[in-house]
Design a protein around this nucleic acid. Structure first.
Length: 436
RNA sequence: GCCCCGAUCGUCUAGCCUGGUUUAGGACACAGGCUUUUCAAGCCUGCAGCACGGGUUCAAAUCCCGUUCGGGGUACCA
């Protein structure tokens, strides 16, 4: 590998699902690497014996994959590299830079002696120069009494051994950076560049957490947000290309991403904008993919997809793509098509079906349609228009009773499409049922 | 408490580095309108912001200082 190639890493700790903030950190590392043909490394920081779980690790992989964030090297597991950390700790011990410390009730740990009276400064890629006084830092535990390294130690050893050139991570690590720099120096290792991206806040301005609603990527996947929408949205959470363009493909984002344009101010997560962006992507999805993505939700709603013609089901989903904002909404709105029993809304029926006009219109539509050979938008439209004309009603006066009779509600896609999809038999059946 | 980071419409942001081109631009949300077969979608319009106070300068959203407010850290968590 050539020396001038940049190398970044995403290093989550597997103590929970991949959340919005972690995903954004992963994304920025990914974007930074892909933009300049660098290498992306994945490292699992599972040094917390108590909180780390395999389930979390698996969920993190899955969410990254779903988002379209891939990596070139790894995953490396810190729990499997204990001897490496021990060796380096021993070296520091031998050189007198670290000592054993026995804290009552905790056992013996290896502790790094923080050099006194020093200013430790670094040039942050996002914030500019940041300076700390070493006297305020205190000695740092390197190896815990359980034999596992602490975050700051394992992180430095691994970043160094993996030749990481740019450490891009959350703002919450700023105060860890001087401690890590002191360690790099003690170890005699080159110091990488650091870029600290601001945290993502909840809609009330406090740090994003579970109480703000859905915070894990997996939850958004389940709700039916599209990965391309999430990718696009997350990329804009703290970064902008510098012009007014917001809707961008993955390739375009990679092409335009630079770390210099990352904001140094925390951003609040805005679900409504994500949802808007999702509906945009929903509108432009190829029909086959849309249908495939939609299927699980239809099945979850208990519909027997084998029973309906696939062509019709696809057409139906296509009609609803502009009416739903997330995939999971598809089940409820397509009920009238997949289920034989229509769930009639009382107010809708009272207003449009039970009235004199409503009944007359339905009867006329039924009669007009009964003879129809074809049952398509084109053949149906003249029939309904004629009914409106004969009754002296606006077209709406015909469409609404029919809509309610067929779907049970006052809201649906165009009435001709609905009739065509339902087919002659079911249309007549439902209208007749309403006329009894 | 101490250390660190930050502050442009309600929110995400452009502009700030390289001060005048800004009546501060875009997007989401919200409000109104158009279209219309209901709902969406689409299109148009509107509402709304440089936290405050000092400097520097002919000129500051842009540079400097302070205040206030928000956030992060201060673990044998990561």
């Amino acid at each position: 590998m050539s020396d001038n190639k940049i190398r970044v890493r995403f290093a989550p700790s597997p103590t929970g699902y991949l959340h919005i903030g972690g995903a954004r950190t992963a994304l920025y590392n990914y974007l930074f690497a892909r933009h300049q043909g660098g290498t992306m490394v994945l490292r699992i920081e599972d040094t917390d014996q108590v909180r780390s779980t395999d389930e979390s690790t698996k969920a993190i992989f899955e969410s990254l994959k779903w988002l379209g964030i891939d990596w070139d090297e790894g995953p490396f597991y810190q729990s499997q590299r204990r001897d490496i950390y021990s060796q380096h700790a021993q070296k520091l011990l031998d050189e007198g830079k670290a000592i054993y410390r026995d804290d009552p009730g905790k056992g013996k740990a290896i502790v790094f002696k923080m050099p006194a009276g020093r200013s430790i400064a670094f040039d942050d890629l996002i914030h500019g120069t940041i300076k700390f006084e070493s006297d305020l830092l205190g000695d740092q535990v390197l190896v815990k009494s359980d034999g596992f390294p602490t975050y700051n130690f394992a992180c430095v050893i691994d970043d160094s051994l993996l030749n990481i050139t740019h450490v891009i991570r959350g703002d919450d690590h700023i105060s860890n950076t001087p401690k890590q720099i002191a360690l790099y120096e003690a170890l005699g290792k080159p110091i990488p560049k650091f870029g600290h991206i601001p945290l993502i806040m909840g809609e009330d301005g406090s740090r994003l957490s579970k109480r703000h609603g859905h915070t894990s990527i997996g939850e958004y996947q389940e709700l039916g947000y599209l990965p391309e929408a999430m990718f696009n949205f997350l990329s804009l959470m703290g970064w902008s290309p510098g012009d007014d363009i917001e809707l961008m493909s993955k390739d375009e984002i990679i092409k335009r991403f630079t770390i210099e344009r990352v904001k140094d101010k925390p951003a609040q997560f805005n679900l409504k904008k994500l949802t808007w962006m999702n509906s945009h992507y929903l509108k432009h999805l190829p029909i086959e993919r849309l249908y495939q993505l939609t299927k699980p939700y239809l099945e979850k709603a208990g519909y027997d997809l084998a029973k309906a013609s696939e062509a019709k089901a696809m057409k139906l989903v296509d009609l609803y793509r502009e009416r739903i904002r997330v995939l999971s909404e598809i089940g409820e709105v397509t009920k009238f098509f997949f289920e034989d029993k229509v769930n009639y809304q009382a107010e809708a029926v009272d207003k449009f079906v039970k009235t004199a006009d409503g009944k007359a219109v339905l009867a006329m539509v039924r009669d007009g349609v009964t003879g129809a050979g074809e049952f398509t938008h084109t053949s149906l439209e003249p029939v309904l228009r004629k009914v409106a004309e004969t009754k002296g009603l606006k077209f709406q006066g015909v469409a609404q009773p029919v809509r309610v009779a067929l779907t049970g509600t006052t809201v649906s896609p165009g009435i001709f499409e609905v009739m065509e999809l339902l087919g002659k038999e079911r249309v007549l059946e439902r209208i007749n049922a309403c006329l009894i």
